[in-house]
Simulated scan of single mutants.
Amino acid sequence: MLAILLALVFAAVELLPGDAATATSERGESAADVAARRHLLGLDRPVWERFIDWMTGLPTGDLGTSARGQKVTDLLADPFPNTLLLAAVAFMLTAVVSLALGCWAATRPGRLTDRIIGHASTSAFAIPEFVVSVVLLVVLSLWTGWLPAVTTTGSDGTPATWTMLIMPALALVIPQTGWNTTIVRGALADQASTPHVEAAYLDGLPTHRIIWRHALPGAVPAIATGLATSTGMLLGGTVVVETLFNYPGIGNVLASAVSTRDTPLIAGVVICAGAAISVVLLAADLSRARTLGAQS
């Protein structure tokens, strides 16, 4: 799947107007200079040849050279860990809040609390990350001044203070919490009709104990799959969120690479994000298989 995705990246950039040689040219350069840069970057070769050459270096960790002559691995060495940090914080917050809200709603089926959480979850998931980001900027920065509007970096290239992670993380967490709360609530509702959970209700056990001890373990496969799916959405959302908050991650790198038609750099960002998503999806599949195996 990653190989197909990378092939589509190369093809999509090829269809965009202009190329890296033109996009990185300086004022006053002649057509001959641009043609020479195009030859140096290999842009005069068929796109499939450039794709095969790039894929050949991938097993050795060589992500190619950017349009400005820098190693792609060097360009991603600092931003990618920052993005992973932001995504990890958002992922953990999403998991904790979604479980708490989903279980809370499950303890009050059909009641006002359950309906409010259900409607709020649907509304939160429907709001794009950039809208959430703008609202957070206006409320938490411009109106109250509680948090900095933009992210500044320290000498090591990471955010200068932990408070600069709050708004970018919240912008990612709020929509995904809505999605995962719905999944948790639905998974627990499915478990409520299983024989062992019905027996627990008939025995008169407290509702919260039934949810945590009897229903939740059986709902783990569905919940894990939902959270794993959110990983791709979280990493995808960083492109917009990092740009709005000037966060030093791969979102800014990707936006710049697209504007300069820098195919190797775009592919480098995609392969890093794709590898991270694949690892999380694999972990979710293993968790699902283990849980289902234990139940059988």
Rank of each mutant, 00 (worst) to 15 (best):
A255H: 01
L234G: 03
L101Q: 05
I174H: 03
L2M: 15
G232V: 02
E129I: 00
P168F: 02
L235K: 03
D78F: 06
V131Q: 00
T151F: 07
G42N: 00
A283V: 12
P221I: 07
L76F: 04
G157A: 03
W54S: 02
L292V: 12
W54F: 14
W162Y: 04
T153G: 02
T161M: 08
A257I: 09
A283I: 13
P79V: 00
T291W: 03
A95M: 08
E14C: 06
T291L: 09
L292G: 02
L136Y: 05
L281K: 13
L41C: 02
P206E: 15
W179C: 04
A255I: 11
A11C: 14
G145I: 04
L112V: 11
S98I: 03
T177K: 04
G186E: 13
S278I: 13
L6F: 07
V9E: 06
I210N: 12
S287A: 15
V150W: 04
L136G: 05
P217E: 08
M92N: 00
A11R: 12
V270F: 12
V150N: 08
I52R: 15
I127M: 01
D62G: 06
R290V: 13
T158E: 03
A289W: 13
L265M: 13
A3T: 15
I210F: 07
V239M: 00
T260P: 05
L170V: 05
I183L: 13
W54C: 07
I211T: 14
K71C: 09
A100F: 01
A20I: 02
I117M: 01
I223E: 06
V89E: 01
M164L: 09
I52C: 10
L8A: 15
W179S: 03
Q191I: 07
L15C: 11
D19S: 05
I116M: 08
A192E: 11
D44M: 12
S98Y: 08
G232C: 10
E129K: 07
M92S: 11
A120G: 11
G178R: 01
F125D: 05
V197M: 10
Q70H: 09
A189N: 11
M55T: 10
L292F: 09
L101D: 08
L216N: 11
I174Y: 04
E26N: 10
W143Q: 15
S98H: 02
L244R: 05
I174E: 02
N180I: 09
A3Y: 14
